[in-house]
C-alpha cells in the first residue's frame, strides 16, 4: 500500500478479507462489481486472481446495481463492493432491485464514520445507512473484525434467499482512520 494513499487497507494479519473471499466462493458468486476501496483491496486482489470470477470495475457504483440485475436475469450471482460514499451514487438505481425483486448483496466499507479525518467524507458516511434503508435495503453493521464474516454471510444469504437488496457496513473502527500524523 502506498504510504501516501489516503485510505487505510486492512492489516496484513487481518483474516476477514480472506474470509469474505471464501464466503463469495461458498455462495457461488461469479460477478464481482466494484469501485475500489482500500478496505477491500486484498479481497479485490483475490477476486482478480480467480478465473471463475468476473471482476467488473465500474465508473460509478450505480452501474453495479444494473450489472447485477443483468447477472441475475442470466442466472449468475454477484456482489457489489464499494465505499460508503458510493452508496449515494446508487440510490435511484436501487429501484431496479426492489421493482424486480433482484437479490443484491452490497459490502460497504465505511468512511466518515469512526474517527474520520476528512470532512468531505462525513456527510455521506453519516447518511449511508439511512439512505440504504430508505430504499428498502436490509442493513447490518460489523464493527469488529470477528463480526465481519458472519455478517457478510447473513447479508449474502438474506439477499439470495429473500430476493432484495441487502448490505453489510464494515465500520471504520475496524480499519481505523488515517490521519497523516495530524492527530
Amino acid at each position: 500500500m502506498d504510504q501516501y494513499a489516503i485510505d487505510k487497507a486492512p492489516d496484513a494479519a487481518a483474516e476477514w478479507p480472506d474470509q469474505i473471499y471464501s464466503l463469495l466462493k461458498t455462495h457461488n458468486i461469479t460477478q464481482v462489481a466494484l469501485v475500489p476501496d482500500a478496505g477491500h483491496s486484498r479481497l479485490i486482489r483475490r477476486c482478480l486472481a480467480d478465473n471463475e470470477m468476473k471482476v467488473v470495475t465500474l465508473t460509478t457504483e450505480e452501474e453495479g446495481i444494473a450489472l447485477l440485475q443483468g447477472a441475475w436475469l442470466g442466472g449468475a450471482k454477484g456482489v457489489l463492493l464499494m465505499q460508503s460514499s458510493g452508496v449515494g451514487n446508487c440510490i435511484n438505481m436501487l429501484s431496479l432491485s426492489i421493482m424486480h425483486r433482484c437479490p443484491l448483496p452490497m459490502l460497504v466499507t465505511m468512511r466518515g464514520d469512526f474517527g474520520e479525518f476528512n470532512p468531505a467524507q462525513v456527510p455521506m458516511g453519516n447518511a449511508t445507512q439511512t439512505v440504504l434503508e430508505a430504499m428498502g435495503t436490509l442493513v447490518h453493521r460489523a464493527d469488529t473484525p470477528e463480526d465481519i464474516a458472519p455478517t457478510v454471510n447473513a447479508t449474502i444469504r438474506l439477499a439470495f434467499n429473500t430476493f432484495r437488496p441487502t448490505a453489510t457496513l464494515i465500520g471504520q473502527r475496524v480499519l481505523g482512520a488515517k490521519t497523516f500524523g495530524k492527530d
Binding site: E62, G64, A66, L67, L68, Q69, G70, L73, G74, N92
Partner: peptide
C-alpha cells in the same frame, strides 16, 4: 425485459446478462 425505471442502467443490465450467458 422492458424497463420502467433505472434510467441510465440499460446497457449495464445488458453487460451483466451477457457475462452470465456468454453463448446467448
Amino acid at each position: 425485459l422492458p424497463l420502467w425505471g433505472g434510467m441510465g442502467g440499460a446497457a449495464m443490465i445488458g453487460l451483466g446478462l451477457a457475462l452470465a450467458q456468454p453463448k446467448r
